[in-house]
């Protein structure tokens, strides 16, 4: 399979990348390429230009910032999976990263790429939601920080404008319980349904592949706040949602899985 022809530019800096994005219509950033290139090969995406930010090593870091950890957008899943800092301060994130794809994907894929792709079926965006992550975006007019909860707006659509670049993911340290339940048939696949739960005093629950975007299970969170049992709160996992249908799962089966997995996630995170 061959992508349609496209131009290629290598960005030398974040500013350089932004300036190319600003001047070229329909240019796309290329980081790990593990979401974009398959779409291009199937000709479902036909960008006019790829702006390669793969060599911007200044965007690959995991740093202790006191009450939060800053993760550069080009940090590979493999590095997140093996980060000591994250394992001790934000342990859910290395675990979720370890569940993404296969070793090849984890060595190429980046957290910034995964989040800015905004795929409702991906694991890391859901983890970012459950962690109330803050996302740093850089564009022609400067920098803005957006809460993950406001970042995902539609199917493969985020609040990022075409000339913006996600540079950093900020996740608060926490010492409570957590869980990530990924249900799939093959280890390398996207989740049929996934549930992330973080308990740092408040309990936050997010869902993978239960709608067009990564989602917070707000009904579950509210029920828990209202004093509902885990069992009762889990029953609200798919409330108000319209989960997708595919060869692996009907909408109804997804709703059922979401309930079971939410119960398991909450039992582990709150246990």
């Amino acid at each position: 399979m061959f992508p349609a022809s496209f131009d290629y530019a290598k960005a030398n800096s974040v500013a350089d990348a932004v300036s190319i994005l600003t001047s070229v219509d329909d240019a796309k950033l290329l980081a790990g390429g593990h979401s974009l290139l398959p779409l291009m090969k199937l000709r479902l995406a036909t960008p006019s230009m790829l702006v390669d930010i793969g060599s911007l090593s200044e965007l690959s870091y995991i740093e202790d910032k006191g009450d939060y950890v800053a993760i550069g957008a080009l940090t590979r899943h493999h590095d997140i999976q093996n980060s000591r800092l994250l394992k001790s301060e934000v342990p859910i994130l290395p675990y979720v990263a370890s569940q993404v794809g296969d070793p090849q994907v984890r060595h190429r894929g980046t957290i910034g790429g995964s989040i800015s792709h905004g795929d409702g079926a991906s694991d890391l965006p859901a983890a970012a939601l459950a962690l109330d992550a803050r996302l740093v975006l850089v564009g022609p007019t400067g920098e803005r920080v957006i809460p993950a909860t406001e970042f995902f707006v539609g199917f493969l659509e985020t609040v990022m404008s075409p000339d913006e670049l996600l540079t950093e993911v900020r996740v608060s340290k926490f010492s409570g319980g957590w869980s990530f339940q990924k249900f799939n048939r093959r280890a390398q696949d996207w989740a049929i349904v996934g549930v992330a739960a973080v308990n740092d005093g408040n309990t936050r629950v997010s869902l993978v592949n239960m709608g067009p975007t990564p989602l917070r299970a707000s009904a579950v969170e509210e029920a828990l706040m209202g004093g509902a049992s885990i069992e009762a709160a889990s029953k609200k996992a798919s409330e108000g949602l319209d989960p997708p249908e595919d060869l692996n799962a009907s909408s109804r089966y997804r709703r059922h899985l979401a309930e079971v997995l939410t119960r398991r996630a909450l039992t582990e995170a709150l246990g």
Partner: peptide, 9 residues
């Protein structure tokens, strides 16, 4: 989509 299993399964 086509579910060839791998050694992991």
């Amino acid at each position: 989509e086509y579910m060839l299993p791998s050694a992991v399964e």
